[in-house]
């Protein structure tokens, strides 16, 4: 590709997104060239076509897509950019697949600072590079001021599952063990405390991370895995209720076994929230046959992303489909679906 003859370079210091950046004209080509292509830099994207031509792969294909809207766009531990890469990689990985490629579509709001956009794109590029999953194709649209929230990013991921692996939310069986890869609530509370301008003694940092390496280690352990899920929006409680509904079982959790970092617990307390319902972006739940649980736990704890992994409960027969929990105090409660949005209590 010969270097196009632009009159002036984009102003990544003080410039702002203009309507023309999404119009398909020269301005758009310039944005793609000076920002996206440079940051994402890989041979598939460099083909410069409307789509990416990819080499053939062996195994069953998995595809997953996710739109990311987060406010604030930048938070402790990450930003919408790396989040959009990690989120989709994780969705592919939870199918037991090795993620291979990503696509990214941006909806930008007119007037959005180019400096912020650059920061987000570089963060995405870095996350993709660290994960070893290139962003091979993309799209950009611009909406008028007031019709977007700065930037929305939709990413799609493709991966392959090797033979002999089948993970699905409807495979949980009575007797299985439930494992969690680490402390819950970090991402949601990092975003919320930033949004509400709350500060706590110890900073709360999002756990956003790509988990396919951890998943690969877990699959390699040979443990009989039945379900993998990342408890994102709606938190651990929502994820477990989804599995219970899909599998037609019940669950009994043990609150004392569920790790929660103290600052997260304190922040939840302050806002009247329950960490079980707070989003995570770098944790996974695994359901496996009881006899393999100890071995799986060992493999997880040996991986840097799951040193705090724990067995948090069991799958049970239950026609009512309740997720129950023995509380720290020794009583029992239901861990229900969330009703509406989780809203802070009044007094």
């Amino acid at each position: 590709m010969s270097k196009p003859n632009y009159t002036r370079q984009l102003d990544f210091k003080n410039g702002r997104v203009e309507m023309s950046y999404g119009s398909g004209g020269r301005a758009m080509a310039q944005l793609i060239d000076e920002l996206f292509a440079r940051a994402f830099d890989n041979p598939y994207l460099a083909q410069g076509n409307d789509g990416a031509l990819l080499p053939s792969a062996t195994g069953r294909l998995v595809i997953s897509t996710d739109s990311h809207v987060v406010s604030p766009l930048f938070f402790a531990g990450g930003d919408i950019g790396c989040l959009s890469v990690h989120g989709t990689i994780n969705d592919v990985a939870m199918m037991g697949a090795m993620p291979l490629y990503l696509s990214a579509a941006f909806i930008l709001e007119e007037g959005f600072p180019l400096a912020d956009l650059k920061r987000i794109v570089i963060s995405m590029a870095q996350a993709a590079r660290e994960a070893g999953v290139p962003i091979v194709t993309g799209d950009t649209k611009v909406v008028e001021q007031g019709k977007g929230d700065g930037v929305f990013i939709t990413t799609t991921g493709v991966g392959v599952v090797r033979d002999g692996i089948t993970l699905s939310g409807d495979l949980a069986q009575a007797g299985d063990k439930i494992l969690l890869s680490g402390a819950i609530g970090d991402h949601g509370m990092a975003v919320l405390s930033q949004r509400e301008g709350l500060s706590f003694d110890a900073p709360i940092v999002s756990d956003t991370a790509a988990l396919h390496g951890l998943v690969a280690a877990m699959l390699d352990s040979g443990a009989c895995l039945r379900v993998l899920r990342d408890p994102t929006r709606g938190g651990l409680a929502t994820t477990l209720n989804e599995i219970v509904r899909q599998s037609g079982v019940g669950m009994l959790l043990h609150e004392a076994a569920i790790p929660v970092h103290q600052p997260v617990e304190a922040a939840c307390e302050f806002l009247g929230l329950d960490p079980l319902y707070v989003a995570n972006e770098g944790k996974l739940v695994a359901i496996c046959a009881a006899e393999d649980a100890a071995r799986l736990l060992e493999v997880m704890r040996a991986h840097p992303q799951a040193v705090d992994a724990a067995i948090i409960g069991e799958v049970l027969e239950d026609a009512h489909g309740f997720v129950q929990m023995t509380t720290k105090l020794g009583g029992r409660r239901i861990v229900d679906w969330l009703a509406g949005e989780q809203l802070p209590r009044i007094c």
Binding site: L329, G330, R332, R333
Partner: peptide, 12 residues
């Protein structure tokens, strides 16, 4: 009421 329910105190 919330604390009693959330911690299942009735069971104790």
């Amino acid at each position: 009421t919330h604390a009693i329910s959330r911690y299942g105190l009735a069971d104790l």
